[in-house]
Design a protein around this nucleic acid. Structure first.
Length: 556
RNA sequence: GCGAGCGUAGUGUAGUGGUUAUCACCGAGCGUUGCCAACGCUUGAACCCGGGUUCGAGUCCCGGCGCUCGCACCA
């Protein structure tokens, strides 16, 4: 086993032992792809979440949403997830063998793979294929079976099919009109959401890297595709980043240069790459272990137009932890199509545009009875004819048919249309963060093994911004009133909003410092005899071991 | 999903069908100790689950679950 693998085993053991992250439901045999954040990790996770929220909310045009994790079938069908992630299954009523519905129906349809679920159901009911296992012809209702977790919304036969969401994004897209009103109809703006996402992975691996239930944090940032974003990135532009362009070797360059040379194709994408880098650095990711990699064309998800991943380097090599995707108008358009609702923003023209129409249209009173069902298409065709058309004439309508249009069917069409603006589908830039993967790398990067007295001495060099425990309070001994004094200080610290303290009185003082170092407590407060006399304590720093004496009142 | 290996206290482990399952760290209590994993005593805690073979199973067999790796899948 390599030294890297041994370190990984020691790290994993410590994370379990000290309550950072642990396999879930272990006393029942465990469940693949599910982890608990323990008594230490739970606080770490919420601190990282809060840091992430603060990071985006400071932009000033971002709001936070919280949408359900249970999502109706139709939403994810519209988004493309059902089609992209699903097979349709049905179970034999006799032998309970599961079969793919489209495969059963191959003899009854030229391309059953393309059918929607209800079409498959209808065809299955109509054609009654034989079960390949037992030749029975009774089938259970068709169900979508894929990487999304299935569930039923409501009871019994009145239940609707739904899924646990595979991403938080869709709830933000379906909320677009609410967001648009909230922001006084002015783009750009964004919505963020922190929450659980679910994917029924075939093979969860590598601990926290591939989970079935995971913490996601996504920003959907809506922009006007015709309005060029500010090409000057300001101080973000000076960030030196490791970038891996499509088909290229990694190279280090200024973010502004990457945008100016066209390596990064869109200024807002570049801006978010910079902001993402800052966030990762803020929570304690080592900047020399961050790189941004552009997706290959054939690698991009079904919705993406351009995509960069933030990859972090750790015990599992380079792992993608953030995806920054230019999704175009894919999602809003998809939900528009599926629902018939409008999900658009308004763009006012600098000058009102007037269109003068001086041509022909149909005369409804005569053309209606003459063309009946085709009248609508005839109208469209006639309105496309030039002004100098002479009737009667032959026009070609949509379906390729030709019709004879007489003079009595038409009348001159003269009008002036004034438009002050237009409705358009905004484009979306989406930074999507895998919080668990980021936390894993925060822990991996913070884990330090020093040698002390020939032993490995473990210290988590976590950022103060996200440490699970801010201070630990120790009585030198639990006697002469030192224990009571220390407990009172501990309670006072815990009563300070945003501060977490830990009390520890067991074992020698050195052992307690070691325990605190192992979970990354930045400062340890020790109550000794002098405390009882002058109300001061020693404060010892995690990374230097230095101690200073401070009055209790100045602790917080 | 397929194949291979593995599964013993909180952690790391020993255990070649036969006592009360080994050792270390660890946790808790007491004592000692005036600030960096100290020491002594006491104590806590495990054979993944289920079935089979056997007089007897941690050990052998079968199934499940979990872990690791490879392939496949996914992004």
């Amino acid at each position: 086993m390599s030294e890297r693998e041994q370190r990984l085993e020691r790290l994993n053991g410590m994370l379990r032992r000290r309550g950072f992250i642990l396999p879930a439901f272990e006393i029942h045999g465990g469940a693949k792809g599910f982890y608990d954040f323990g008594p230490v990790g739970g606080r770490l996770r919420s601190r990282v979440n809060q840091a992430w929220l603060d990071h985006w909310l400071r932009m000033g045009n971002i709001v936070e949403l919280s949408c359900p994790t249970v999502t109706p079938y139709a939403v994810l069908e519209a988004s493309g997830h059902v089609g992209e992630f699903s097979d349709f299954m049905t179970v034999c009523g006799s032998c309970e063998e599961a079969s793919r519905a489209d495969v059963l129906l191959e003899a009854h349809h030229t391309n059953p793979d393309a059918l929607k679920m209800d079409e498959l159901q209808n065809l299955l009911d109509a054609s009654k294929p034989e079960c390949p296992a037992c030749a029975a012809t009774e089938w259970s209702p068709v169900e979508a079976q894929n990487l999304m977790f299935n569930t039923t919304i409501g009871a019994g036969s009145s239940g609707r099919q739904g899924f646990l969401r595979p991403e938080t994004a869709q709830g933000m897209f379906t909320s677009f009109n609410v967001l648009f009103r909230h922001f006084r109809e002015r783009l750009p703006f964004g919505a963020v959401q922190l929450g659980k996402g679910y994917r029924n992975e075939i093979a969860p691996r590598q601990g926290m890297i591939r989970l079935r239930e995971f913490n996601m944090a996504e920003l959907e940032y809506f922009i006007d595709p015709e309005k060029k974003p500010e090409p000057n990135l300001g101080d973000l532009g000076d960030l030196m980043l490791t970038l891996v362009g499509e088909g290229q070797e990694p190279s280090s360059m200024r973010l502004q240069d990457a945008l100016d040379t066209g390596l990064i194709r869109h200024a807002t994408v570049a801006e978010f790459i910079g902001r993402t880098h800052r966030f990762l650095e803020h929570v304690g990711i080592h900047t020399d272990k961050i790189r941004f990699r552009q997706h290959e064309q054939d690698e991009m998800a079904h919705y993406a137009v351009d995509c960069w991943d933030a990859e972090l380097h750790g015990s599992y090599g380079w792992v993608e932890c953030v995806g920054i995707a230019h999704r175009g108008c894919y999602d809003l358009e998809a939900h528009e199509k599926a629902t018939g609702k409008t999900l658009r923003a308004r763009r006012e023209f600098d000058e009102p545009r007037t269109t003068v129409i001086d041509a022909w249209t149909i005369n409804g009173a005569t053309a209606g009875p003459a063309f009946k069902a085709m009248a609508g298409q005839v109208k469209k065709a006639v309105e496309d004819l030039p002004k100098d058309t002479v009737f009667p004439c032959t026009v070609i309508i949509d379906e390729g048919a030709t019709v004879e249009v007489l003079a009595e069917h038409v009348k001159p069409n003269q009008k002036t249309i004034k438009e002050t603006g237009e409705w358009y589908l905004p484009h979306v830039i989406e930074p999507a963060f895998g919080i668990d993967r980021i936390i894993w790398h925060v822990l991996d990067h913070a884990y330090k093994e020093d040698i002390k007295n020939d032993d490995k001495y473990v210290r988590m060099e976590l950022s103060d911004k996200i440490v699970p425990v801010d201070m630990a309070v120790f009585p030198l001994f639990e006697k002469d009133g030192m224990g009571e004094r220390a407990w009172a200080i501990h309670q006072r610290l815990c009563a300070t909003p945003g501060l977490v303290s830990m009390y520890d009185a067991s074992g020698s003082i050195g052992r307690r410092y070691a325990r605190a170092d192992e979970i990354g407590v930045p400062r340890c407060v020790t109550v000794d005899h002098q405390t009882l006399e002058d109300e001061t304590v020693t404060v010892r720093s995690r990374d230097t071991g230095e101690q200073i004496r401070v009055p209790i009142d100045e602790l917080c």
